[in-house]
Amino acid sequence: MCDSCGCNVTPGNLHLVKPDGKLAKTREGFSAVKILKSLLNENDQQALHNRQHFDQHQVLAINLMSSPGSGKTALLEATIDALKDEFKIAVIEGDLETENDAERIRQRGVTAIQITTGSACHLDAHMVHDALHHLDLAPLQLLFIENVGNLVCPASFDLGHHLNVVLLSTAEGDDKPAKYPVMFRAADLVLISKSDLLPLLDDFDPRCAEDYLRRLASDAPLFGLSAKNKQGMPQWLNWLREKIQQHRQGLQQDKTLAASIQPDAGQLDKPAHKQIPNPD
């Protein structure tokens, strides 16, 4: 019995369900082929490939996700200003349309590659891979992937990045983690952005936001910051420095960082189930 998914295929009985096995044909005469792979297997393979690229060049890749308008680009601008003498940074920008965000980043003096997704509401590993063809990873230490502003779809796609950072702005509801559990459960760090507006927005309580996050069994750190008045920025910059170091140290021992987006229960790490049985 497989503990992950409750299926009954084990190495001991796999031959029975293989084509031409005793149990392979149903009463109606159809052949059942057991697959047990992620629905996004193709994306996951590409993501793995992307992550190998990043690791090979010792680049820490961070996937930035949030609702539209919660301040992802403003945070990146402030981050680049603070860290550009310390680390070589680049940004991949995902938007439905326009080069506007990439232009803003380029004005801070770093390379920005714009992906315009058209009608697609999320980035996937293939789009990021295409963008990587226009980016020289060799001199970089830090790559931000600014995902399409959306709290739903981007959560399901591994891009090959190492960490997920989710922004929740004070102009939104503090119960967003309860409303979008898939996204917030995937967060390695939650930033309460636009914290300079807190005195004006008495219906947003950062403690409530944290409480809702903890109810998702998440240990991810959460703190407020403002790209405008720089409050909370040192904590964010230190978190980045720490993660860059952690990633590098890990690579020396052949370990990489993988974001929380990888499923727990649905994990498919059982070697016996990984391969499609070959046709006889």
Partner: peptide, 9 residues
């Protein structure tokens, strides 16, 4: 959190 392609007939 499963998103698994179980089998095809």
């Amino acid at each position: 959190d499963e998103m698994i392609l179980d089998s095809v007939q």
